[in-house]
Structures are given as structure tokens and as C-alpha cells.
Design a binder for these strands. Sequence first.
DNA 1: AAGATCTGCAACCGCATACCA
DNA 2: ATGGTATGCGGTTGCAGATCT
Length: 319
Amino acid sequence: MGRSPCCDKNGLKKGPWTQEEDLKLTNYIQVHGPGNWRTLPKNAGMRLCGKSCRLRWTNYLRPDIKRGRFSFEEEETIIQLHSVLGNKWSVIASILPGRTDNEIKNYWNTRIRKRLLRNGIDPVTHAPRLDFLELSSILGLTLCGQSVVNASNLLGAQTLLNPQLLSLANTILSLKQENPDSVLQYLNQNQLCTTSTAVPCTSMINQTGLTQEGFSSDMTNLSYPNSQENLTSSILTNAFVGQPNTTVPVLSETPNMQSLDGNQNYSFDSVRSTPTSSPTPLHSSSTYLNRCSTDDEIESFSTLSKFEIPEGLDINDFM
DNA sequence: AAGATCTGCAACCGCATACCA
DNA sequence: ATGGTATGCGGTTGCAGATCT
């Protein structure tokens, strides 16, 4: 079956949208509703590709889009869902109300991914990067007289994965394959993506088939008066990392590993991934070293363990 | 101060799949 | 069953503004 062009490209405007175009599209959709994107531009009196209109609407003009910074809870949720779902941005977006798949994808690629790498976590597998860790360990022994990482602890990293969250993700994925519309229905039914009234965790846990096993007793009585999305993300967050008996791998931080300028934050963005890592380079130029944003310095990563690279070690020498 | 480089994000591209005649 | 069309999705690109040298 041949692939047809999404639209007749001749004479169609491309590039950034103007205010007038936004207004036209918004007004048209308010009257006629979204959909029928192919004919929409013509009917709305615009010389734009229907695909472009759909993208503009879903990613920017839709009234239920939440703009602005991602909250810590949202960020944690994204990381945890990504560890289970991979690059299923649309599924992740369906669990984060008001966020679009494009926004989440961009946020992942520009912020989270880099931070994971900086903390020695492979953003694809979400496991510690053994190639780097082994190197770091060896060099730590050699250069500093101590081991930087405990490899046996690293092997326990997979225990961070909560089977309950995995089950939820599986359910969502299965539903999506059977009937994409049922995903939203499922999420709404189980109050996973509504912004209406808050519901105690116990309610949601029961409705989603999650048992209380693995949650602290405090968790089951929590309610989040401000927003349901916080509840959802917090539950997912805690479901993933909050297991009472989970052994979180701890990578020792060595105080003698400051850089010469006293900056304790090292960037590992230029470290090449393991073969199982993302084949896509973070950036072709790989020049993110020593660019720790204020945000990065302020924000803490409760689920991530940091490790440091021995002073004077130039990773590029081992590339 | 100015050019170079980096960053974040909107938008584009092309493939996959659903839908329909 | 087949083939054309519409839509969804994920990867990638381009560019404006920020930051660095």
C-alpha cells in the first residue's frame, strides 16, 4: 500500500504560526470541534497543512494544556514511566494530565536524559552504566585507593522496579493495543488522569487492582487536596521507589573528588553508552561538559544515586 | 562588545496503523 | 480482500534566545 502525502504541499505555508492563524484555528475548532484535519485548513480559510493544524492544536492551542515548568512529581513520574514504557510518549502523556507527548518528549531529551547520564544512569535501560562504573571503580581503586562504586549493589538496581507499576503499565499498553480510546476511559474510570476531586490513595489502589502491599501505611491514607495529578504521580512515584524493603543501591560519594575549581558536579554527557544504550548521540558535538544549570544544582534526585569521577580523569581518553 | 556555542522548544518528517469504500 | 486516505506517533530538525569566551 503506497504512502500518500499528508497534504498537498504546493502553496502551503510552513513555519511558525502567527497569532492570526492560531485565532482562526481556535475559533474554527470551538465551532466545529477538532478532527477532519485534512479539510480543516481549507474550511477555516488557512493555507496550512492539516497535519500542521492538528499538531498546533494538540501541542499548543488545546485549552486543557498545562504550560510551564514540570513539577518534581511530574518529573519523577516521567522517569519511572519511561523506565517501564520506554519512549511511549503518548502513553506517558495520557497519565500526566495537561502535558502533551511532544512536551514530555522534549523535556526528556533536553533535561531528564542529560541528568540521568550525568548521574551515571543509562537513560534507555535506566540501569547504572556499568561500562563507566567499572571504569570508575577501577580507577578509583588505582588513583584514590578506594572503590568508588559497589558493583554488587549496582546489580540490585533492578529491584527499583515495582511490579505493581509494571502491572499498571502493562494494563495501559494492552488496552491501548486493543482500543486506544479505552485507555483514557480506563484512566478516567480509575481516576488516574482526572483533575476533579481528590480521592484517597486506597480508593485508587483498589480500583486499579493494586494491592497495598509495597506501600507504607502512611501512603494508603494520603490524600492530595490540590490536584489529582499530584496524587497519581505520587502514587506512581512511591509505587516505584517507595517499597519499604527495597534496597536502593548506594554509590558512595567521595569527598575528595571535587574538581579543581571546587565544583562537585561532574557531567558525564560525553560518556559513550554501552551497546545496549541509546544509539542516538545526545548531541553530535558532545559539548555539555561543565554546564550544570542552576536547576540541576538545586533539584535533588531522590531516586538516583550519584557517583563521582576521580579527579583528573579525562573520560575522553578512554573513548 | 561581538562572535561562537549551547539550549530549549515548536514544528516538521516519515512510518505505522486504523478506518473506510 | 484490497487499496486509498486520515490520523497518531516518535524521531529529528531549525531557529531564537541565552550563555560563554
